[in-house]
């Protein structure tokens, strides 16, 4: 296998992050774990945005990933974190394969609303499930990695962080290759003009279907990692405001590069944390202005800060 420069630099940054994890304080590791895990969900949103579809219900798969990991440990005796994560991804793929059959017939706002509806239906089911703690959810603990149980506290936090960074790296490399490969390019072509893609003899619907399922699996992984890191799952993961947050982060980063969601997720968490600390009564307003500012001044997201130099070269 040959790695291109982007992949090598991704790996370098990932290793740097893991090493950084050993020296940084606990709150920062946690913040970065959650940010990276959410960034994986955002990758799912971005994958669909590249093909012109905006999912207002990506929380569905985030929640499926989280609940599968939680229920695996709580009810089915699956304590191995890797197995639980894999199961979460698998469940998400199965659900996505079914829902995708219907959803890929829709575009624009109809796709957005229908994906939202499915996510809200899951929310409703979970709220009704008193054995799963209804809206209170339940705790996720006592997990192991290949039979090894990290010590509670710093040890398990470190483990989740490393797992998240490594999954992030693997997914980022895969997505990077995917966007460069034929199918990824076709997705962008579908966004630009679906009819012309049909004229080329391709079926946009099945391309979108594949893309939808792939995006679901990535998002479920993010949900599972969040559950492990937080130690708790609740139905709010499927609520529409959670999905709104993912779109927020996706736009913050922009579609320009596979690394953008990771950076955007960190920036989002940091802005929110400090907004909550310094203006506890009006932190949402700060988020709103940040979003507007990015849209007005950086229409291609934060990533355009990094790639500006390059577009200058071209011009």
């Amino acid at each position: 296998m040959r790695f291109d420069k982007t992949e090598i630099s991704l790996a370098a940054v990932a290793i740097a992050c893991v090493l950084f994890g050993f020296v940084s304080p606990g709150w920062l590791i946690f913040l970065m774990t959650i940010a990276f895990a959410k960034a994986l969900v955002v990758q799912g949103v971005v994958m669909q945005m590249r093909s012109g579809l905006v999912s207002f219900g990506q929380g569905l798969f985030y929640c499926i990933g989280g609940y599968t990991v939680g229920m695996g440990g709580q009810f089915f005796g699956i304590h191995d974190a890797i197995a639980a994560l894999a199961l979460g991804v698998l469940v998400a793929i199965v659900v996505a394969m079914i829902l995708g059959l219907l959803l890929t017939r829709y575009r624009d706002i109809f796709f957005a609303m229908l994906s939202l509806a499915f996510s809200m239906i899951l929310f409703g089911i979970l709220v009704k499930s008193q054995s799963l703690g209804s809206t209170d959810g339940f705790n996720v603990h006592n997990w192991t990695v290949f039979g090894w149980a990290p010590e509670v506290g710093a040890g398990s936090q470190q483990t989740v962080f490393t797992m998240t960074v490594l999954s992030g790296l693997v997914i980022a490399v895969l997505i990077h290759r995917y966007t460069k490969a034929g199918i990824g390019v076709i997705c962008e072509a579908i966004r630009e003009n679906e009819v012309r893609v049909e004229y080329l003899g391709l079926s946009p619907r099945w391309v979108l279907y594949g893309n939808y399922v792939a995006a679901a699996s990535v998002s479920a992984l993010g949900g599972g990692l969040t559950a492990l890191a937080t130690g708790h799952v609740d139905p709010e993961m499927a609520y529409w405001t959670t999905s709104g947050e993912f779109i927020f982060i996706a736009l913050l980063g922009g579609l320009g590069h596979v690394a953008a969601p990771f950076i955007a997720a960190i920036v989002f968490s940091v802005v929110r944390t400090y907004a909550i600390e310094f203006v506890p009564h009006t932190w949402q307003m700060i988020l709103g202005f940040t979003l507007l500012g990015v849209i007005v001044f950086l229409p291609k997201g934060l990533w355009s800060l990094v790639s500006r130099e390059k577009s200058g070269e071209r011009a």
Partner: peptide, 18 residues
């Protein structure tokens, strides 16, 4: 069109706190 949705989402956050 989708960007306009997000702009109004930002507006929502601002108006709620206002």
């Amino acid at each position: 069109e989708i960007l306009m949705v997000i702009i109004t989402y930002a507006l929502l956050l601002i108006l709620e706190d206002t």
